[in-house]
Design a protein around this nucleic acid. Structure first.
Lengths: 338, 338
DNA sequence: TTGTAAGCGTTATCAG
DNA sequence: CTGATAACGCTTACAA
């Protein structure tokens, strides 16, 4: 079948140890033998079996990535960022999708251990106690990305954008532009980082300037166009006094909300300002162009990969949580009331 | 370090062969020993080393995927489709990005062979002779997705949408709606399937109804917003007689073109109709909503995965190229002239 | 410099 | 049903 190191050794008239040495340049080999071996390797298209290599060296050059859904732009960019680092360092990536289901995530953790990955990058939806525990049991290091642990803080290294601050800044931005009635149209309430944390930032900003939080100005739902549309409808129908601005949990939610407002003939940003979150590809495709909170998921992936690499090298005493910066991007869906 | 089958055997007071048997249920083991072994396995969180398993069984349950860029929505959906099948069948996926660079692709082909993948799904940009040859050398089966071989037809199994027909149908649709001056704003001329093939469909449709192809109505460029914008600009500036409709190589190109037209105060679809390609997420977010050619990349991934699985089972005499259907979606950027 | 041989953690063949 | 033991393909002391 596949040609092995033994075949090469025999054909080149040397020992397998010598072949191994020329492949790995691990010990000096005379130029003569070296050339002879190379020639035979080339001619036979020999590729060392990395399973055998890994079995003995404990080095598989493989790292695992678990994301809920690879077709989601956020995870696509995140994965690309992570992969850019690993590929450069000679690592190969095993990609797994969990649909954000705990059961699936737990299962994948085990499968990846069997595959002998050297480290794991994990992006989840609710990284609860069960999950954290399972990660601690595994014998590879893991870093959490985009989603921090919801019950065990500071136990697992994490790379994330500061959701509280990002939403705080978003509301702050609107406040600075003279808005006082600001609604929150966010993601799922059970989403710890992208749901709860952002809501926290929203509340904090309002409370800080002494504006009482109007609970009927808070609507939570999926990160989808439909949820944005329905959420805006709820906001519209259940408030006699409409907000002058609404912050959202994602650009997709924002665009859904805009659709509803458009249907109702509410003008953006004249009657109401909208602020997205993420800065998705389509933010500048829609009209008016979407003002939003930019998060560089690519950078987040890069940072997470680098952190994992450090852990794999055994570097300990690391900062437990590393933040990636965010930025308010003013485009055309927000208007100043000043 | 990690607990091995030997540790389990010792602790359970049985031979490693017995442990192996209970793990794999490959041969009967008395209920008594079985339970004892299971208990020890649980207690120690034992996970068999799949490298060792693969080394002897030749089964790694790993397949490779090579795409140019995982953050591109097309490849994200494709990958998700493929993964949905593999995960279900107990396979794990090694994901690689090539940036569409030949050198990188060649290198990855080798790395994946070392990793002992059982099969490969390949999405490239230009699958030329060199690449096909390299694939044939590898000892795993491969299926091409989204991009057919540009020089060696029918040598490697392929799953793709029919680009010639899709663009033919797109132009046909416009023709049926009374358009006669139809421009083509497509992807790169060196992109075989998504560039050349689509252009071919465009020409064919026009020629078929006896409309001479106006070369200055053909503009090719990247699959980007900017290229769409610039391309439309070229079309606008270099033609005294504007087209009444333009077919594009992708939705992103279409939206770029729309932006330019909007700047020029050309109304869509009243002055000019635009037809996208792909049916991206944002097609319904923009205004007017984009008419487009829908391709289900998810389904394409699913189909490709299934085909690869069949090849892995040794089923030969397969159809060499399998097509995934496309569909014209009429929304608001196209107008009937009838 | 080069070769021999002992593993790495499993599965699989053979006896028993 | 159970247990030795020989692979699997490679790396790495240990010798020569």
């Amino acid at each position: 079948m596949a040609v092995t190191i033994e075949d090469i050794a025999r054909e080149a008239g040397v020992s397998i140890a010598t072949v191994s040495r020329v492949i790995n340049k691990t010990k000096p080999v005379s130029a003569q033998l070296r050339d002879r071996v190379y020639e035979v390797i080339e001619r036979n298209h020999f590729k060392p079996n990395s399973l055998a290599q890994g079995l003995i060296t404990k080095k598989t050059n493989t790292i695992g990535i678990i994301v809920p859904d690879i077709s989601n732009a956020v995870f696509g960019k995140l994965t690309k960022g992570m992969n850019s680092i690993f590929a450069k360092q000679g690592y190969t990536v095993v990609l797994c999708e969990s649909q954000g289901k705990l059961e699936k995530e737990l299962q994948l953790l085990g499968i990846l251990e069997e595959k002998q990955i050297e480290g794991l990058l994990f992006a989840g939806v609710d990284v609860n106690h069960t999950l954290v525990n399972a990660m601690l049991q595994r014998d590879y290091p893991v870093v959490l990305v985009t989603q921090e642990a919801s019950e065990d803080e500071g136990v697992i290294n994490t790379v994330i954008h500061n959701n509280v601050e990002a939403m705080y800044d978003a509301v702050r931005f609107l406040l600075d532009n003279g808005h006082r009635r600001i609604a929150y149209l966010g993601g799922p309430r059970n989403d710890f980082s992208s749901g709860k944390k952002r809501l926290k930032g929203y509340r904090r900003a309002l409370e800080e300037v002494g504006i009482p939080v109007n609970e009927s100005y808070i609507v939570q739902g999926e990160f989808s166009f439909e949820a944005g549309y329905q959420g805006m409808k709820t906001l519209y129908e259940e408030n006699s006094k409409l907000p002058t601005a609404v912050v959202t949990g994602s650009d997709v939610i924002a665009v859904g909300a805009m659709q509803y407002l458009d249907n109702m003939r509410v003008r953006i940003p004249d009657d109401i300002s909208i602020l997205g979150f993420d800065d998705s590809e389509f933010a500048t495709y829609i009209k008016p162009e979407l003002s939003t909170v930019r998060i560089s998921y690519y950078d987040e992936g890069v940072k997470a990969a680098k952190m994992l690499l450090r852990m794999m090298k055994g570097e300990t005493d690391l900062p437990v949580t590393e933040y990636v910066s965010h930025k308010i991007i003013r485009r055309s869906t927000t208007k100043s009331l000043n």
